[in-house]
Amino acid sequence: MNPTIKDVALKANVSIATVSRVLNNLTGYSDQTRLKVNRAIQELGYQPNAIARGLINKRTQTIGVMFPDVSSAFSYDLLQGIDKFAHDHNYSVMVCNTDQNGIRTLKYLQLLREKQVDGIIFSSGVLKKEYYDVLDSMNIPVVLVSTQTDFANVPYVKVDDYQAVYDSVSYLISKGHSKIAMISGTEGDPIAGTPRVEGYLKALEDHGLPFESRYLVYGDFSFQDGCTGMETLLEQAPEVTAVFAASDEAAIGALSTVTRLGMNVPGDFSIMGYDDIRMAQMVSPPLTTVRQPLFDIGRIASEKLITMIETGEVVQSAIIAHSIVERQTVRNLT
């Protein structure tokens, strides 16, 4: 017969309530008592019943995380930060791959409702009103990552995309580049597409450089669209000396294309990315990029969500600092 919480209490010589408080990381006991309870749990081989605990504290100790592409390096780094904080605070994480599809997003929201998750982290997409209405009816907190919204009770954690790209293009200009192209994300995307293009355009304007429409190509932040975008630029704007890509995956695609065609980076073209995913330092040459600290962003989002779950109060949004990471793909022309 499996040991029960009562067995643990008897062996540790404490009350059942004290064992429950230790299991749920609540206060009201000494370090010595915590050690006694944990020793009893280990010796008995006691496994807490998540369903029973949920009935008692009205929680499942589970959070849902929604990504448009769970296989991307961007999502992976975010998830590491989310999961680390959640795990350290005795929460489990349920990951959903929405595939930027409204129908799939609604289906996953229904699944998370059925699983009675305590809160949701929503990443990288627009929080449409139809999604918000479902979340509101679930009466659980939600935190946005790498996106934002005007809904007052939905905090977000992200970098300033506009400023990050403005600083990146200004960095290329400081290196003597005046013919700078951009491989953007999705055209019209209000989250990471349009703000990054606006940062690019404003940096050119403030430094007295004209904008050439053929210097701007659109994609979807992917490696393949980085390849395609670079091919387009080589065909329609061969005079370009530097390319800024709106994601590291797209930048690595551009780098791959230039190398495949027998040209050199940074000798023939300078390339700069956005994100600082792990792969950025693994490619050859290592990629110069603007870093948004994805692990930290995920960790902070997880912390904010769990705080909202446990206090019932809405927390403040956070804009996280970005930084330029200099490696070996930008040539100094000055």
Score class of each variant (00 low, 15 high):
32 Q>C: 02
275 D>K: 03
309 I>F: 04
112 L>I: 12
311 T>P: 12
52 A>K: 06
299 R>Y: 12
126 V>G: 03
319 I>V: 15
136 D>G: 09
328 Q>W: 04
95 V>D: 04
256 S>Y: 10
127 L>H: 03
93 V>E: 07
43 E>S: 15
158 K>C: 10
140 I>L: 06
102 G>F: 15
53 R>I: 05
247 S>R: 09
54 G>S: 07
126 V>Q: 05
179 K>P: 00
170 S>F: 03
38 N>H: 07
281 Q>M: 14
330 V>A: 09
69 D>G: 10
260 R>P: 03
187 E>P: 11
225 D>Q: 15
56 I>P: 00
203 A>C: 12
34 R>C: 08
136 D>P: 01
289 T>E: 00
144 L>C: 10
228 T>E: 14
124 S>V: 04
38 N>Y: 06
15 S>K: 11
14 V>H: 02
154 V>M: 04
21 R>F: 11
266 P>T: 14
209 L>F: 03
204 L>K: 08
208 G>N: 10
13 N>Q: 13
174 S>M: 10
203 A>S: 13
10 L>E: 10
276 D>N: 13
216 L>H: 07
80 Q>D: 08
70 V>T: 11
105 T>G: 02
296 D>C: 02
260 R>N: 15
89 H>S: 13
33 T>K: 09
322 H>R: 01
307 T>D: 10
289 T>A: 00
232 T>M: 11
225 D>W: 13
223 F>N: 03
164 A>M: 10
255 L>G: 02
292 Q>P: 11
120 I>P: 05
54 G>A: 08
321 A>T: 15
53 R>A: 09
67 F>I: 01
83 D>N: 07
117 V>I: 14
273 G>E: 00
237 A>M: 09
191 I>F: 13
155 P>G: 14
220 D>Y: 08
225 D>F: 11
32 Q>P: 01
165 V>E: 06
327 R>Q: 06
161 D>N: 14
306 I>N: 05
164 A>N: 08
247 S>N: 08
261 L>C: 11
136 D>R: 11
121 I>A: 09
44 L>V: 06
165 V>D: 09
281 Q>L: 05
262 G>S: 13
190 P>K: 09
330 V>N: 02
69 D>T: 02
38 N>K: 07
29 Y>C: 03
27 T>A: 15
9 A>H: 01
29 Y>K: 07
268 D>Y: 15
86 A>L: 04
212 E>D: 11
300 I>M: 12
101 N>C: 15
306 I>P: 01
156 Y>Q: 09
248 D>K: 06
283 V>R: 03
17 A>N: 14
161 D>S: 04
170 S>C: 09
26 L>A: 15
121 I>D: 00
49 N>Q: 01
230 M>T: 05
267 G>I: 12
217 V>E: 04
64 G>S: 00
162 Y>F: 14
52 A>V: 05
18 T>P: 03
262 G>P: 08
245 A>Y: 09
317 S>P: 05
